[in-house]
Design a protein around this nucleic acid. Structure first.
Lengths: 204, 204
DNA sequence: GTCTATATTCTGATAGAC
DNA sequence: GTCTATCAGAATATAGAC
């Protein structure tokens, strides 16, 4: 009787290569934009000829798909680190907002892949889309714990955060002009949905 | 003595061709995305061989530049039609918000060119950038007339509108899920900056 | 101002040897 | 699983005739 090994070294190696390829694609995307990712350059970075990449991804869009899933998985992890305190709903909202804001502006290409349709031919697979839903679910859970439950209120919240991020990236890239408005946005939102607690900032 | 003609028919014809080319580029951008615009296809639409386009635009980016200027000129015109009533500041803000929101979601490609960096190699010329500043100036003038003057308040306002547009395009394309939140956004904003007037919507 | 011809380079993807 | 060879095509841009 031969004991089966409890680790599949071949599968591990394969997965490591997949991650290397995705990492190379991220490098290019961060440097020259999402659309600049080419199999040629990905291959050059990982030390492969372009056709060899097809042993690991069935198409270029499959690479984008893997990146999409990674991006939202990262957002979910970041949001999971936020520990809301129901006794301090406004503080908790601010921490959640800052967490997602900082995660987003840290990598424009990643944010564009996650939330903007900059790649006309790309649509996430069901598996990748599920990752985005997982991250959204984390955010919803966080909001529930501080007392925000109505879906219209959640929509309002996502719009506030998306707007701050969008403006920061478009009109003050690398700065803090909109990031520093987050406490005010949280107060506005908290007042609008009836959350208790002291204001984070003085009124005017 | 020979009277000079008071119309330069040649210049008019030239300008008309320029507009035809830009129009063709818009058609492609709307159908397949901004990055899908190629000289080949633009030429096919206007009935020219690709090299002939260089008689009217010095490069492909010059075409994007013309589109950028047109887009912001259109936004300025749309905003100019808004007539704010200082006695009804909230109503006025709502009309302004709806105007820019509708203009934006009516053409995703146009919005991406105006406000998102989806073309890595494109940067607007000073002339085109001035168009965007003109539209922003119209918005600022509108806000001034209803009593919003602090620059931090203007930043807050642009973030709210950008957020609603961004979410509408990303998560409910073609729908009204975020558009119908505009009255609430206006109330939130008006309360935060101390504008008088009755709420547009009941509180909850 | 438009054309033909061409330069140069790049693209994603497939076939088949090793 | 990686390679070479290749496909089939597209890209922007320039030169020079008409």
């Amino acid at each position: 009787m031969t004991a089966l090994p409890n680790r599949d070294r071949r599968a591990e190696r394969r997965e490591a290569t997949r991650l290397e390829i995705l990492d190379a694609a991220w490098q290019i995307a961060r440097r020259d934009g999402l659309a600049a990712v080419t199999l040629r350059e990905v291959g050059a970075i990982v030390g492969m000829r372009p056709p060899s990449l097809y042993s690991h991804f069935e198409s270029k869009n499959a690479i984008y798909d893997g990146m999409f899933a990674q991006a939202w998985a990262g957002a979910r992890v970041a949001l999971s680190k936020v520990e809301p305190d129901p006794k301090q709903p406004r503080r908790s909202l601010l921490v959640g907002a800052e967490t997602f804001f900082d995660f987003s502006v840290a990598d424009v290409a990643r944010y564009q892949l996650m939330s903007q349709a900059v790649l006309p031919n790309f649509e996430p697979s069901p598996e990748a889309y599920a990752e985005s839903q997982g991250a959204y679910g984390r955010m919803v859970a966080l909001m529930h714990q501080v007392g925000v439950r109505r879906s219209a209120d959640l929509d309002l919240w996502t719009a506030l955060i998306a707007g701050a991020i969008s403006q920061q990236l478009a009109n003050d890239f690398g700065g803090t002009r909109w990031r520093q408005q987050l406490p005010r946005l949280v107060d506005m939102f908290a007042d609008a949905v009836g959350l208790p607690g002291p204001k984070l900032r003085r009124t005017r």
